[in-house]
Structure formats: C-alpha cells, structure tokens
C-alpha cells in the first residue's frame, strides 16, 4: 500500500500552488480558484488521515468543508460581479480605494 506520507506531501504541494496563485495572479477569478485549490488540498489531507486511522470523522469534515466552499463560492462570485459592475475590471491591483 501507498504510505500516507505521499498523500500528505501531495496535499502540501497543491496547497502551496494555491497559495502561489493567490500571490502572483492579478485576475480576481483565478485568485478565487486558487483558494478552492487550497481547500481541496486540505480535503485530501483529511481523507488521507481518515484512511490512516480507519476513522470516519475525517470524511465527515470533508463534507463540511465542501459546504463551506460552496457557500464561499456563491458569496464570493456575487462580490466579484458587484465589483466588476462598479469598476469594470477584476484586476486586484486596481482595488485600492475604500469608497466605491
């Protein structure tokens, strides 16, 4: 069988890539996708540990994370649409004033 370390390392790699996406991209939509990638990496670690300890709690946590991700996407995309309406752009570098 595959050592659980491999899954954890893969999860770390995916998480770092998501974080790099947040840091280097300027397109707000892709920044948002990177956040999804990070959540997904956390899910992978949860399922791997659930398999390691033969315990269902990890899988149930993954469900809750998926729910939170769905809610986050709904609200976040609504925010992106609202920002685009007021600024005609989704460049994160241009979002530098508080007054809309």
């Amino acid at each position: 069988m595959i050592p659980v370390n491999y899954y954890i390392i893969l999860s770390a790699v995916l998480f770092i890539m998501g974080m790099l996406g947040v840091l280097i991209r300027r397109n707000l939509l892709i920044v948002f996708m990177s956040i999804e990638l990070m959540l997904n990496a956390a899910n992978l670690a949860f399922v791997a540990f659930s398999r390691m300890y033969l315990n269902l709690n990890g899988q149930i946590f993954v469900f809750f994370i998926m729910t939170v991700a769905a809610a986050e996407v709904a609200v976040g995309l609504a925010l992106i649409v609202a920002i685009f309406r007021s600024k005609q752009s989704i460049d994160v570098d241009q979002m530098n004033n508080l007054k809309g």
């Binding site: 069988m1 998480f15 840091l23 280097i24 390691m52």
Partner: peptide, 28 residues
Amino acid sequence: AIVLGLLLFAESVYLLFQKITLNTGLSS
C-alpha cells in the same frame, strides 16, 4: 511572491518529514 512560496514549501515539507514519521503503509 515566488521566493516566499518556495520558502513556505520547503518549510512545510521539512516540518512534515520532521513531525510525522508515518512511513508505515496504509493497512490494507
């Protein structure tokens, strides 16, 4: 950004290898 990301990656991999010694395969 890239330098910081690679730094975080090295750090996390180091910590993962340091803290968890789970080299046992998953029980079949």
